[in-house]
Simulated assay, not measured.
Amino acid sequence: MTALLTRRATLLGAGGLAALRPAAASALRPIREQDALIAFGHTGPVTDGGWTHQHDLGVEAVRAAFPRLKTIFVESIPYSADATRIFRQFVAEGAQMVMATSNYGDFIRDVADRAPEVAFMECDGRNVSGNLGWYYITHWYASYIIGIAAGLLSKSGRLGYVASFPISSVYAGANATLLGAQSVNPNATMQVISINAWFDPQGANQAGAALVDSGCDFLCGIMDEPAYLRVAQERHVWAAMWNTDMRRFGPDAYVSSVTLDFAPYYVQQIGDRLRGTWRPDAHFLTLGHGVDRDAWGRNVPESVRMQADAARTKMLAGWSPFVGPIHDASGRMRVAPGQTMDDMALYSWDWPLRGVSGLA
Rank of each mutant, 00 (worst) to 15 (best):
A3N: 11
R8K: 13
G16A: 04
L20W: 08
A27V: 10
R32S: 15
E33T: 10
E33V: 11
A36R: 07
T47H: 07
H53N: 08
R63C: 08
A64M: 06
F73G: 06
P78L: 01
Y79N: 14
A81K: 07
A81T: 13
R88H: 09
F90V: 08
A92Y: 01
M97H: 08
T101I: 11
T101R: 06
N103V: 11
Y104D: 06
I108S: 01
E117M: 08
E117W: 04
E117L: 04
V118T: 12
H139W: 05
W140D: 02
S156C: 10
Y161H: 01
Y161A: 00
F165I: 12
L179H: 11
T189V: 09
Q191Y: 00
A197M: 04
G203N: 09
A204S: 15
N205R: 13
N205E: 11
D213V: 01
S214M: 06
C220N: 15
D224W: 10
E234Y: 02
A240D: 01
M241E: 10
M246H: 07
M246S: 10
R248P: 01
F249Y: 13
V255Q: 12
S256I: 01
L260K: 14
F262I: 12
Y266V: 09
Q268T: 03
D272F: 02
A282V: 02
A282N: 02
T286K: 03
H289C: 12
H289T: 11
G290L: 04
G297H: 03
E302V: 08
D309N: 11
A311V: 10
G318E: 00
P321A: 08
V323S: 01
G324Y: 07
I326A: 00
H327Q: 05
R334N: 12
Q339K: 12
Y347N: 14
S348P: 01
W351H: 10
P352Q: 05
